[in-house]
Each structure stands twice: as C-alpha cells, then as structure tokens.
C-alpha cells in the first residue's frame, strides 16, 4: 500500500487501517488505548508473546496512524489517535489509490496504442 501524501500531511489508506485492525492482538491494544494512554510494557503484559513480536504489532498500528508513541523518560507511552478513522481522509486516500490504479492502466493503454501505431 502506498502512503498517500496530500495537503501537507500523511494519511494512511483504508488498506492500512484494515490491515491494522485485522488482528486480535492489535484490536486488543486499540481497545485498551481507547481507555487512555498506556506504556508499552503495560500494553504487552496481557499478550502471550515475545516483546519483539509484540513490537511488530505496535509498529503496524503506528503506521496506520491509529496509535502514536513518545518517550517519557525511560518509558514509551502509546496514545490512540482515532482521527485516523476520519471519513474524509480515508475517502481521499481511497480516491488517490483508485487514481493511481487508473493512471497505471491509462499509461499501459497509451503505450499499447503507440506500439501498434509504430508497427
């Protein structure tokens, strides 16, 4: 999935959001963060997996824009950013993604026409 650059900000596409949500561990993290910010250690606690595996889930959530983290002393604290769900942003990301695909097909067609004309 290509991250779409627009209007001085980066908006994740629907695919990234769906991907972030399509896993029970990540959904549990979102549900926990829905109640307020939490340190990584606390988030990882209930999950029966090695920390590096858990951090991969967090990384995907951060890439989706849903979760952000910052260092507070020696602790990394995560916060939920539900505005990543904003409909207009998701919509424009979808539109841009559609146009990327369309322009690819348009280019392929123009190149095919050109080749035929040159023959």
């Amino acid at each position: 999935m290509i991250v779409s650059h627009m209007a001085n900000r980066i908006t994740p596409g629907l695919d990234t959001l769906f991907q972030a949500l399509a896993d029970p561990t990540r959904r549990a993290v979102i549900a926990r963060l829905g109640r307020g910010p939490a340190p990584v250690k606390e988030l990882a606690g209930p999950h029966d997996m090695a920390l590096p595996s858990f951090l991969k889930h967090l990384d995907m959530l951060e890439r989706s824009g849903l979760v952000r983290s910052r260092k507070s002393g020696r602790v990394r604290v995560c916060t939920l950013h539900p505005e990543a769900f904003a409909v207009a942003d998701a919509w424009i990301a979808q539109q841009k993604q559609l146009w990327e695909g369309r322009i690819d097909r348009m280019a392929a067609l123009a190149e095919e026409l050109e080749r035929k004309e040159m023959e």
Binding site: A88, W99, A107, A110, E111
Partner: peptide, 12 residues
C-alpha cells in the same frame, strides 16, 4: 482536499 498523481509514459 487536493491530491495529484504523476506518471511518465512511453507514448506521445
């Protein structure tokens, strides 16, 4: 909102 898509194409 504004967005753009740019492509280089091997056709005139």
């Amino acid at each position: 909102q504004t967005f753009d898509v740019t492509r280089e194409i091997a056709a005139r």
